[in-house]
C-alpha cells in the first residue's frame, strides 16, 4: 500500500468529492474550499461554523414540494452567499465527513507517533 500526499499552491489536499475539494495550508493555518470551481478561504473557527450550518439544514424540508429545494447560506467572514441545491448540500456533507475523518486520523498520528517522540 502506498500513501500519497497531494499538495498544490492551496496547501495539502485533505479530501475530495466529485465537485468539491478541501485544502489545508500549514503556513497560514487556513483552509481553502474549492466548490464547483469557486474558492473560499476559511479560518478553522469559520470552517466549523460553516460545517455546522450545512449539518443543520433540514433535508426533508427541501424535499417538500411546497418550498424551493434551495438553501441559502451566508458566509459572513467573506460576505458571500451560497445558494445550495440538495445535491450540493449532500456533496458538502460528504466532503466535511471525509475531511474531518482525515483530520482526526492526522490528530491520532500526531498524538501517537509525533508528539510521543518529543
Amino acid at each position: 500500500m502506498t500513501t500519497e500526499t497531494v499538495t498544490s499552491s492551496l496547501g495539502v489536499l485533505i479530501f475530495s468529492t466529485d465537485n468539491t475539494h478541501l485544502y489545508q495550508c500549514d503556513t497560514t493555518e487556513q483552509f481553502t474550499l474549492v466548490f464547483f470551481g469557486q474558492k473560499v478561504v476559511f479560518r478553522f473557527c469559520e470552517l466549523i461554523v460553516f460545517k455546522s450550518k450545512i449539518r443543520k439544514i433540514d433535508l426533508f424540508n427541501l424535499f417538500n414540494t411546497d418550498v424551493p429545494d434551495i438553501e441559502l447560506i451566508h458566509l459572513p467572514h467573506c460576505d458571500r452567499f451560497f445558494a445550495l441545491s440538495t445535491l450540493q448540500i449532500l456533496e458538502l456533507r460528504e466532503l466535511f465527513s471525509g475531511s474531518f475523518a482525515m483530520m482526526e486520523l492526522n490528530s491520532i498520528i500526531q498524538r501517537r507517533i509525533v508528539r510521543k517522540a518529543l
Binding site: 500526499t5 489545508q24 500549514d26 493555518e29 478553522f44 473557527c45 483530520m103 492526522n106 490528530s107 500526531q110
Partner: peptide
Amino acid sequence: MKDILRRHQV
C-alpha cells in the same frame, strides 16, 4: 501536515 484540528478544536 499540521494538526490544526487539535490546535484549534479543543
